[in-house]
């Protein structure tokens, strides 16, 4: 491989990994605080939809990004109300929120935009920031695939420090390890979880916006295609360690990119379904090998606790 194609490869890798990494980093904190949020898929989709519609009507990708963030966190807060305050089953609430989001975005798309080939927005988020991004020396084009790529790469490192050596980190861990006891130590567990979920909503909204107004410039029904669920699974694969999250997401994205290039190269004849199922087989295999449950935050997935 020559240099430009390597940089193209890394570029593709980062393009695929940025939204997943954004969500997964926050989902890691959320899970460390004891909540498993499958509603990210919905928050991401709502983000993608909002960003598209707002950008379409205002021609401002930045405004689109901001509204995606706002509505993404709203979806997450809705999840928090049901799963944290009403203490409904986290997993079912998450799946339902995602399901409703698919329906609602496709429904509203029909009402607001219409049907058929979606009108392209005037300029994408990347277009809007391209001159600035390109001007960054050396890695400008590769590393700064999107304005959020550097942030997404920095988040796991920041969270590694946060969890390892800060009071906030201790409070998050306490909420996830044993919410009843954390509450007795004076932690407002519900508030901790809600704040983290709201932050995750922001990340999900931004990641969704990246898909619609960042890479593609348009919105399609269910365009997140399970990426939110994937982020949740990758958190589990990385054994809830921010240090392992970055390599895990990158390896996973690598498989995804390699899988497409493998099909493109025509070197190996495999059923394309097998190529496409690679990420899922990979996930299951890692789940099987890593005997995941042991390192999980002790109260992960359970909404019930008492003081």
């Amino acid at each position: 491989m020559d240099l430009p194609s390597i940089s193209g490869f890394i570029g593709s890798l980062l393009a695929i990994s940025t939204p997943i990494l954004l969500i997964a980093s926050l989902e890691l904190l959320v899970q460390r605080s004891g909540v498993i949020n499958l509603g990210v898929e919905g928050a991401m989709l709502v983000g993608a939809f909002t960003a598209y519609v707002v950008t379409l009507y205002t021609s401002s990708p930045l405004l689109g990004l901001l509204s995606a963030i706002a509505l993404g966190s709203l979806v997450s807060i809705l999840f928090a109300i049901m799963a944290v305050y009403m203490r409904l089953d986290q997993i079912v609430v998450g799946v339902s929120i995602s399901m409703v989001s698919i329906g609602l975005t496709s429904y509203l798309y029909r009402l607001i935009v219409g049907y058929g080939s979606p009108p392209k927005i005037q300029s994408t988020l990347i277009d809007a920031l391209a001159p600035f991004l390109r001007s960054i020396p050396i890695a400008g084009d590769t590393l700064f695939q999107t304005p959020l790529t550097p942030i997404s790469l920095a988040l796991p490192i920041a969270f590694w420090l946060l969890l390892g050596r800060s009071l906030v980190g201790a409070i998050i861990k306490a909420s996830g390890e044993d919410p009843s006891r954390a509450c007795r130590l004076g932690v407002n567990v519900a508030m901790v979880r809600t704040i983290l979920l709201a932050l995750e909503g922001i990340a999900s909204g931004a990641a969704g916006a990246l898909l619609s107004i960042g890479y593609y410039g348009s919105f399609l029904e269910n365009m997140t295609a399970g990426r939110g669920y994937l982020a949740v699974a990758l958190v589990i694969l990385s054994s809830w360690s921010p240090a392992r999250l970055l390599p895990t997401v990158l390896i996973f994205s690598l498989i995804e990119v390699a899988q497409l290039r493998l099909q493109a190269s025509g070197i190996i004849e495999i059923p394309y379904q097998l190529a496409l199922s690679m990420p899922y087989i990979f996930t299951l295999a890692i789940l099987a090998i890593s005997s995941g449950g042991k390192k999980a935050p002790r109260s992960l997935g359970s909404s019930e606790y008492e003081c």
Partner: peptide
């Protein structure tokens, strides 16, 4: 899209 919404709401 309505049918997805209904299914999700039934779940919740």
């Amino acid at each position: 899209g309505a049918s997805y919404i209904i299914q999700g709401i039934l779940l919740i």
